[in-house]
Amino acid sequence: MSVREEFDRWASEGRDKGMEERHWHTAKHALARMPVEPGDTVLDLGCGSGYAGRALRETADAGRVYGLDAAPEMASNARSYTDDSQVTYLVSDFEHLPFADDSVDHCFSMEAFYYASDPHVALSELARVLRPGGTFYCAVNFYEENVHSHHWPEMVGVEMTRWSEREYRQAFRDAGLHVAGQDRIPDREITIPPADEFPTENWASRADMIERYRTYGTLLTVGVAP
Protein backbone atom coordinates (compact mmCIF):
# COMPACT_ATOMS: atom_id res chain seq x y z
CA MET A 1 0.00 0.00 0.00
CA SER A 2 1.24 3.52 -0.68
CA VAL A 3 2.06 5.83 2.22
CA ARG A 4 -0.76 8.09 1.05
CA GLU A 5 -3.33 5.31 1.06
CA GLU A 6 -2.15 3.96 4.38
CA PHE A 7 -2.45 7.35 6.09
CA ASP A 8 -5.75 8.13 4.39
CA ARG A 9 -7.01 4.99 6.07
CA TRP A 10 -5.51 6.01 9.42
CA ALA A 11 -7.14 9.42 9.12
CA SER A 12 -10.56 8.02 8.31
CA GLU A 13 -10.27 5.74 11.34
CA GLY A 14 -9.43 8.81 13.46
CA ARG A 15 -5.95 7.56 14.27
CA ASP A 16 -4.49 11.02 13.60
CA LYS A 17 -5.60 12.05 17.10
CA GLY A 18 -3.95 9.06 18.75
CA MET A 19 -0.67 9.90 17.03
CA GLU A 20 -0.98 13.51 18.14
CA GLU A 21 -1.42 12.45 21.74
CA ARG A 22 1.54 10.07 21.77
CA HIS A 23 3.87 12.28 19.75
CA TRP A 24 3.07 15.36 21.82
CA HIS A 25 5.09 13.93 24.73
CA THR A 26 8.32 14.70 22.91
CA ALA A 27 7.17 16.96 20.06
CA LYS A 28 6.30 19.74 22.48
CA HIS A 29 9.90 19.89 23.69
CA ALA A 30 11.20 20.17 20.14
CA LEU A 31 8.61 22.85 19.34
CA ALA A 32 9.56 24.82 22.46
CA ARG A 33 13.16 25.07 21.28
CA MET A 34 12.33 26.51 17.85
CA PRO A 35 13.45 30.12 17.36
CA VAL A 36 10.09 31.17 15.94
CA GLU A 37 9.47 34.92 16.22
CA PRO A 38 6.07 36.63 16.06
CA GLY A 39 4.85 36.73 12.47
CA ASP A 40 7.18 34.00 11.18
CA THR A 41 6.00 31.62 8.48
CA VAL A 42 6.18 28.01 9.60
CA LEU A 43 5.82 24.74 7.71
CA ASP A 44 4.86 21.38 9.25
CA LEU A 45 6.00 18.50 7.03
CA GLY A 46 3.71 15.48 7.27
CA CYS A 47 1.41 17.32 9.65
CA GLY A 48 -1.07 14.52 10.43
CA SER A 49 -3.73 16.06 12.68
CA GLY A 50 -1.90 19.39 12.31
CA TYR A 51 -1.28 20.04 16.00
CA ALA A 52 2.25 21.40 15.60
CA GLY A 53 1.31 24.41 13.50
CA ARG A 54 -1.59 25.25 15.80
CA ALA A 55 0.73 25.05 18.82
CA LEU A 56 3.26 27.41 17.25
CA ARG A 57 0.50 29.91 16.49
CA GLU A 58 -0.48 29.87 20.15
CA THR A 59 2.86 29.68 21.91
CA ALA A 60 5.20 31.57 19.57
CA ASP A 61 2.74 33.86 17.80
CA ALA A 62 3.79 32.41 14.44
CA GLY A 63 2.27 34.26 11.50
CA ARG A 64 1.18 31.99 8.73
CA VAL A 65 1.38 28.29 9.37
CA TYR A 66 1.25 25.61 6.67
CA GLY A 67 0.57 21.98 7.45
CA LEU A 68 1.44 19.71 4.57
CA ASP A 69 0.44 16.08 4.18
CA ALA A 70 0.31 13.70 1.23
CA ALA A 71 -2.86 12.05 2.54
CA PRO A 72 -5.96 14.15 1.68
CA GLU A 73 -7.92 12.66 4.58
CA MET A 74 -5.22 13.81 7.02
CA ALA A 75 -5.28 17.37 5.65
CA SER A 76 -9.06 17.32 5.81
CA ASN A 77 -9.11 16.14 9.45
CA ALA A 78 -6.45 18.72 10.37
CA ARG A 79 -8.50 21.49 8.77
CA SER A 80 -11.58 20.47 10.74
CA TYR A 81 -9.79 21.05 14.07
CA THR A 82 -9.31 24.82 13.69
CA ASP A 83 -11.00 28.01 12.51
CA ASP A 84 -7.76 30.01 12.59
CA SER A 85 -7.54 31.73 9.23
CA GLN A 86 -3.74 31.91 9.51
CA VAL A 87 -3.47 28.12 9.51
CA THR A 88 -3.60 26.40 6.13
CA TYR A 89 -3.46 22.70 5.40
CA LEU A 90 -2.53 21.43 1.98
CA VAL A 91 -2.00 18.15 0.23
CA SER A 92 1.45 17.80 -1.20
CA ASP A 93 4.62 15.75 -1.27
CA PHE A 94 7.95 16.24 0.57
CA GLU A 95 9.90 15.87 -2.64
CA HIS A 96 7.81 18.35 -4.61
CA LEU A 97 7.29 21.29 -2.27
CA PRO A 98 4.89 23.84 -3.74
CA PHE A 99 6.62 26.81 -2.07
CA ALA A 100 8.72 29.58 -3.53
CA ASP A 101 12.48 29.71 -2.76
CA ASP A 102 13.35 31.25 0.65
CA SER A 103 9.67 31.59 1.54
CA VAL A 104 9.62 29.69 4.86
CA ASP A 105 11.16 30.84 8.17
CA HIS A 106 11.12 27.52 10.02
CA CYS A 107 10.07 23.96 9.35
CA PHE A 108 9.02 21.26 11.80
CA SER A 109 8.45 17.60 11.13
CA MET A 110 7.48 14.84 13.55
CA GLU A 111 7.54 11.12 12.74
CA ALA A 112 7.14 11.77 9.02
CA PHE A 113 10.45 12.51 7.34
CA TYR A 114 11.53 8.89 6.90
CA TYR A 115 8.50 8.13 4.72
CA ALA A 116 9.96 10.25 1.90
CA SER A 117 10.70 7.98 -1.06
CA ASP A 118 13.94 9.90 -1.52
CA PRO A 119 14.86 11.71 1.71
CA HIS A 120 17.84 13.41 0.04
CA VAL A 121 15.54 15.06 -2.46
CA ALA A 122 13.20 16.05 0.37
CA LEU A 123 16.14 17.72 2.16
CA SER A 124 17.19 19.69 -0.89
CA GLU A 125 13.63 20.84 -1.39
CA LEU A 126 13.64 22.03 2.21
CA ALA A 127 16.98 23.78 1.82
CA ARG A 128 15.46 25.54 -1.19
CA VAL A 129 12.31 26.83 0.53
CA LEU A 130 13.97 27.88 3.83
CA ARG A 131 15.25 31.45 3.97
CA PRO A 132 18.85 31.94 5.11
CA GLY A 133 18.92 31.25 8.85
CA GLY A 134 15.69 29.25 8.67
CA THR A 135 15.70 26.04 10.69
CA PHE A 136 14.51 22.48 10.06
CA TYR A 137 13.47 20.66 13.24
CA CYS A 138 13.37 17.03 12.20
CA ALA A 139 12.04 14.67 14.88
CA VAL A 140 11.87 10.90 14.39
CA ASN A 141 11.29 7.88 16.62
CA PHE A 142 12.35 5.49 13.86
CA TYR A 143 16.13 5.47 13.52
CA GLU A 144 19.06 3.10 13.55
CA GLU A 145 20.09 3.43 17.20
CA ASN A 146 16.51 2.80 18.35
CA VAL A 147 16.57 -0.96 17.92
CA HIS A 148 12.99 -1.17 19.17
CA SER A 149 11.78 0.57 16.01
CA HIS A 150 13.42 -1.68 13.46
CA HIS A 151 10.35 -3.81 12.81
CA TRP A 152 8.03 -0.87 12.11
CA PRO A 153 8.16 -0.91 8.27
CA GLU A 154 7.04 -4.51 8.29
CA MET A 155 4.34 -3.73 10.84
CA VAL A 156 3.01 -0.64 9.04
CA GLY A 157 3.50 -2.16 5.60
CA VAL A 158 5.20 0.82 3.99
CA GLU A 159 8.84 1.59 3.25
CA MET A 160 10.81 3.78 5.65
CA THR A 161 14.37 5.11 5.57
CA ARG A 162 16.32 4.04 8.63
CA TRP A 163 19.23 6.39 9.19
CA SER A 164 21.61 6.52 12.13
CA GLU A 165 22.19 9.75 14.02
CA ARG A 166 25.36 10.24 12.03
CA GLU A 167 23.59 9.59 8.74
CA TYR A 168 21.04 12.28 9.58
CA ARG A 169 23.80 14.80 10.21
CA GLN A 170 25.61 13.79 7.05
CA ALA A 171 22.50 13.93 4.87
CA PHE A 172 21.61 17.40 6.19
CA ARG A 173 25.10 18.61 5.32
CA ASP A 174 24.98 16.97 1.88
CA ALA A 175 21.80 18.95 1.23
CA GLY A 176 23.58 22.17 2.14
CA LEU A 177 22.12 22.62 5.62
CA HIS A 178 24.32 23.35 8.64
CA VAL A 179 23.71 20.97 11.53
CA ALA A 180 23.04 23.08 14.62
CA GLY A 181 22.40 20.24 17.03
CA GLN A 182 21.16 16.74 17.58
CA ASP A 183 19.85 14.85 20.56
CA ARG A 184 17.33 12.37 21.86
CA ILE A 185 14.33 13.74 23.68
CA PRO A 186 13.13 11.19 26.23
CA ASP A 187 9.42 10.49 26.54
CA ARG A 188 8.90 10.88 30.27
CA GLU A 189 5.11 10.80 30.05
CA ILE A 190 4.31 7.44 28.54
CA THR A 191 2.78 5.14 31.10
CA ILE A 192 5.11 2.24 31.77
CA PRO A 193 3.17 -0.56 33.49
CA PRO A 194 4.53 -2.28 36.60
CA ALA A 195 6.87 -5.23 36.07
CA ASP A 196 4.28 -7.95 36.65
CA GLU A 197 2.24 -6.82 33.63
CA PHE A 198 5.04 -7.77 31.25
CA PRO A 199 5.14 -9.20 28.66
CA THR A 200 2.44 -6.89 27.25
CA GLU A 201 1.00 -6.97 23.75
CA ASN A 202 3.84 -4.78 22.49
CA TRP A 203 6.68 -5.26 24.94
CA ALA A 204 8.58 -8.39 25.90
CA SER A 205 10.12 -6.75 28.94
CA ARG A 206 9.80 -3.60 30.99
CA ALA A 207 13.50 -2.86 30.39
CA ASP A 208 12.88 -2.79 26.64
CA MET A 209 9.98 -0.42 27.01
CA ILE A 210 11.99 1.88 29.24
CA GLU A 211 14.87 1.83 26.81
CA ARG A 212 12.59 2.65 23.89
CA TYR A 213 10.98 5.66 25.55
CA ARG A 214 13.46 7.01 28.06
CA THR A 215 16.78 6.23 26.39
CA TYR A 216 15.98 6.44 22.70
CA GLY A 217 12.92 8.67 22.83
CA THR A 218 12.72 10.97 19.84
CA LEU A 219 15.77 11.79 17.75
CA LEU A 220 15.85 15.50 16.94
CA THR A 221 18.20 16.83 14.29
CA VAL A 222 18.27 20.60 13.77
CA GLY A 223 19.39 21.99 10.42
CA VAL A 224 19.92 25.63 9.51
CA ALA A 225 19.90 27.09 6.00
CA PRO A 226 23.19 28.99 5.47
Binding site: P72, V91, H96
Partner: peptide
Protein backbone atom coordinates in the same frame (compact mmCIF):
# COMPACT_ATOMS: atom_id res chain seq x y z
CA UNK B 1 -3.75 21.93 -13.07
CA UNK B 2 -4.11 21.33 -9.34
CA UNK B 3 -7.55 21.06 -7.78
CA UNK B 4 -8.87 22.85 -4.69
CA UNK B 5 -11.45 20.58 -3.06
CA UNK B 6 -13.38 21.19 0.15
CA UNK B 7 -11.15 24.18 0.79
CA UNK B 8 -7.90 22.19 0.53
CA UNK B 9 -5.49 22.64 -2.36
CA UNK B 10 -4.04 19.41 -3.67
CA UNK B 11 -0.57 20.19 -4.95
CA UNK B 12 0.63 16.62 -5.34
CA UNK B 13 2.29 16.00 -8.70
CA UNK B 14 -0.51 14.64 -10.94
CA UNK B 15 0.90 11.09 -11.07
CA UNK B 16 0.92 10.85 -7.26
CA UNK B 17 -2.56 12.29 -6.99
CA UNK B 18 -3.97 9.69 -9.33
CA UNK B 19 -1.90 6.82 -7.98
CA UNK B 20 -5.15 5.21 -6.78
CA UNK B 21 -8.84 6.09 -6.95
CA UNK B 22 -9.87 8.45 -4.11
Amino acid sequence: EYPVEDGIPNLLPPDMREESPA
